[in-house]
Design a protein around this nucleic acid. Sequence first.
DNA 1: ACTGCCAGCTGATTTACATCA
DNA 2: CTTGATGTAAATCAGCTGGCA
Length: 275
Amino acid sequence: MGFDDICSPGLVLGLGIPSTEDNHKPRKPSLKTEQSINFEPSLTLSLFGSEAFDKKSDAPPPADDLHRQDSAASSFSNGSVKRERELLSEEVEIERNSSRVISDEDEDGGGSNSRKKLRLTKAQSALLEESFKQHSTLNPLSISQKQKQDLARELNLRPRQVEVWFQNRRARTKLKQTEVDCEFLKKCCETLTDENRRLQKELQELKALKLAQQPLYMQLPAATLTMCPSCERVGGGGGGGGGGVGENASKNHPLIAMASKPHFFNPFTSPSAAC
DNA sequence: ACTGCCAGCTGATTTACATCA
DNA sequence: CTTGATGTAAATCAGCTGGCA
C-alpha cells in the first residue's frame, strides 16, 4: 500500500475552474460559449459518484445569493434611514456622475487629479448586477465592446467603468466563494477527523475482542508464529515490545520479517458519512 | 451630540499572462 | 516564430461610509 493508495480518496478539489475540462487551459476567452461563461468560480470538494456537492451542476445559487446578501448587507444594508437618504441623494448623484463622465472623457483623469470616488447609484448597480447574472464575462466572442458600450450608455458611465466593475465583481465573487468553500472544507475535515477517530477506536475494540476469543497460544503476535518451511520451526519469540516484531526476527530469518503488516486506515475506501 | 479611529466596501490602477490574428 | 492587440485575473491602492468607544 503506497502513499497514493491512502491519498487518492476520490476527492475532487478544484479552485475556480470547472472540474472536468480545460483545467490546463484555464482561460480561453475567445472560445467561451455562453455555457462556459456562466459558471461561477468555485472550489469544490466531492467524492466521486457523489452528487452532494456538485457545484458545477447545481451551482447557481451560492455566488449570486451570496452576493445579493453581501451587497444587501454592505452597500444597501443599513435600514430605512439610509435608504431614504439614498433615494434623496440619488438624483443628485446621477447628475454628478453624468457630469463627471462628460468631464472625464474630456481629459481622461487629468486636471486637479483629486481622485474623487465614483459611487454607483442603486439603479446603476442593479442594472450591472442584472447584466452580471446573465454573463459574468462580457462576451468577448462577438460583442464585448458593443455590450460594454451599450451598458455604459445605458448607465451613463464610461465603458471602462463598466469593464472595471465587471472585473471587480468577478474577483470579489470568487473571493467570497473561496471563503465559503474554505469553511466547508474545514467542516469536512473536522467530520472526517472525528470519523477517523471513531473508526480507530472501533478497530481497537474489535482487535481486543478477537484476541480475547483466541486460545492462549494463539494470542502471540502473528510474526512470532510464522513457521519456517525449511526448518519447520515456529520462528520469532522474544520480541519484547511493540515495535520489535519484525526487527529481531528478521535478522535471523527473512520470512519472519513480512509477517506483520501495519494497518492503515483509509477513511475514503469505506463509506463515509463525512460529506 | 460630536469626534476620531477603524474596518469593510468598492471604484480604479497596475502588472502579468493567455490567446489570437 | 514573432509581434501587437485584446481580454482577464490578481494584487494593490485609495476614497468613502458606518459602527463604535
